[in-house]
Computed example of a mutant assay.
Amino acid sequence: MEVQGKIKVLGETKEYGKNGFRKRELVVTTEEQYPQHILVEFVQDKTDILDKYSVGQQVKIGINLRGREWVSPQGETKYFNSIQGWRIEAVQQNSGGQAPVAPEDQFEPVTDLNEEDEDDLPF
């Protein structure tokens, strides 16, 4: 799965426990009719891949959905979900949202136009 948008928040790498579990969070804002702010976690060696990205940058993130079950001391079962990133890449944006147009000098000019030529369309 993938999510694409603009980086809104880029957290610092945090270390947890005696084993040195590392986690870094990133919030990406999607660009759609109703923008969503999606929290994506990067863990262990994947935290380092965020070093070359910055807030405001357009990115596409490869994600995995993770779910886990937790049973409270009272016996109540709860479920938690997280979004874990495993890949990220910068996305180039076109200005104006239109396809790029080739420069004029890449087209051969039309020289045989004659306004008196009859239209050969069947309608």
Rank of each mutant, 00 (worst) to 15 (best):
R22V: 15
K23R: 15
R24S: 08
R24V: 12
R24K: 14
E25A: 13
L26T: 15
L26P: 11
L26R: 07
L26K: 03
L26V: 15
V28R: 01
V28F: 02
V28P: 08
T29G: 01
T29V: 14
T30E: 14
T30Q: 10
T30G: 12
T30P: 13
T30Y: 07
E31L: 12
E31M: 06
E31I: 15
E32V: 15
E32M: 12
E32H: 08
E32N: 14
Q33I: 10
Y34L: 07
Y34G: 02
P35H: 08
P35V: 11
P35K: 11
P35T: 13
P35E: 03
H37W: 08
H37K: 13
H37R: 09
H37A: 15
I38V: 13
L39N: 11
L39P: 01
L39S: 06
V40C: 03
V40S: 02
V40E: 03
E41T: 15
E41F: 11
F42I: 12
F42T: 13
F42W: 02
F42L: 05
V43C: 10
V43F: 01
V43S: 10
V43I: 14
V43N: 08
V43E: 14
Q44M: 09
D45P: 15
D45F: 07
K46T: 05
K46F: 07
K46E: 04
K46D: 09
T47G: 09
T47K: 10
T47M: 09
D48P: 00
I49Y: 00
L50T: 10
L50H: 09
L50K: 04
L50C: 10
D51K: 07
D51L: 05
D51N: 15
K52F: 01
K52I: 09
K52S: 06
K52L: 04
K52M: 09
K52T: 12
Y53A: 06
Y53C: 04
S54D: 03
S54F: 03
S54R: 06
S54E: 14
V55E: 14
V55M: 08
V55K: 15
G56Y: 02
G56K: 12
G56S: 05
Q57K: 09
Q57E: 15
Q57G: 11
Q57A: 14
Q57S: 13
Q58F: 06
Q58H: 02
Q58D: 15
V59G: 08
V59Y: 03
V59C: 03
V59I: 06
K60F: 00
K60P: 00
K60V: 14
K60N: 12
I61A: 12
G62D: 11
G62C: 00
G62E: 02
G62M: 06
G62S: 11
G62L: 04
I63Y: 01
N64G: 03
N64S: 12
N64M: 08
N64C: 01
N64D: 11
L65K: 02
L65A: 09
L65V: 10
L65Q: 07
R66W: 06
R66S: 01
R66D: 01
G67M: 03
G67S: 09
R68G: 12
R68I: 05
R68N: 11
R68V: 05
R68W: 06
E69T: 13
E69R: 02
E69K: 04
E69W: 00
W70Q: 06
W70V: 10
V71Y: 00
V71W: 02
S72N: 08
S72R: 03
S72D: 13
